[in-house]
C-alpha cells in the first residue's frame, strides 16, 4: 500500500501513546522525561507529515520551533531533577509524594 498521510499519522499516534505509557507506568523521573520527549517527537512527526502532504511550509517552521523549545525544556527540567535529587536524595516519584521539601 502506498504510504500516505494516514500511515504517517498512525505511526505518530502509536509513538505518542508509547511515550504516554512510559509517563504513566515508569517511576523514575529521568525515564518519565524520556517518555515526554517521545510524545514531543510524535507531534513533530505529525506536523512534518501534514506539512508535506498539504504542501505548506508552516508546519516545518513549527517543528523547528518545537525542537528548540524542547531543548530548553529538557535543560530546565533536568536541572530541576538534579536540584531535587540534591535536596531529597531520590529521583523516584513514589518517594516524592509530599509538597514540602
Amino acid at each position: 500500500m502506498h504510504a500516505g498521510l494516514n500511515h504517517y499519522l498512525t505511526v505518530s499516534v502509536l509513538l505518542f501513546c508509547l511515550g504516554f505509557l512510559g509517563v504513566i507506568t515508569r517511576r523514575n523521573l529521568v525515564v518519565i522525561y524520556m517518555g515526554l520527549e517521545l510524545m514531543l517527537n510524535a507531534a513533530n512527526l505529525a506536523l512534518v507529515a501534514f506539512s508535506r502532504f498539504n504542501a505548506n511550509l508552516n508546519g516545518q517552521v513549527m517543528v523547528f520551533f518545537t525542537i528548540t523549545v524542547a531543548a530548553a525544556e529538557v535543560a530546565v527540567g533536568l536541572a530541576l531533577i538534579v536540584a531535587l535529587y540534591r535536596k531529597r536524595g531520590t529521583a523516584h516519584v513514589e518517594d516524592l509524594a509530599t509538597l514540602k521539601l
Binding site: 522525561y33 513533530n44 517543528v63 525542537i67 531543548a71
Partner: peptide
C-alpha cells in the same frame, strides 16, 4: 522520507547530539 531534510539534520544534531548528552 517526508523530504524534510533540514529538520532531519536538526533532529540528529540537536536531539541525538545535545539533548541525549544532557540526559
Amino acid at each position: 522520507l517526508l523530504h524534510a531534510f533540514f529538520l532531519a539534520a536538526i533532529q540528529v544534531l540537536v536531539y541525538a547530539g545535545a539533548v541525549m548528552v544532557l540526559f
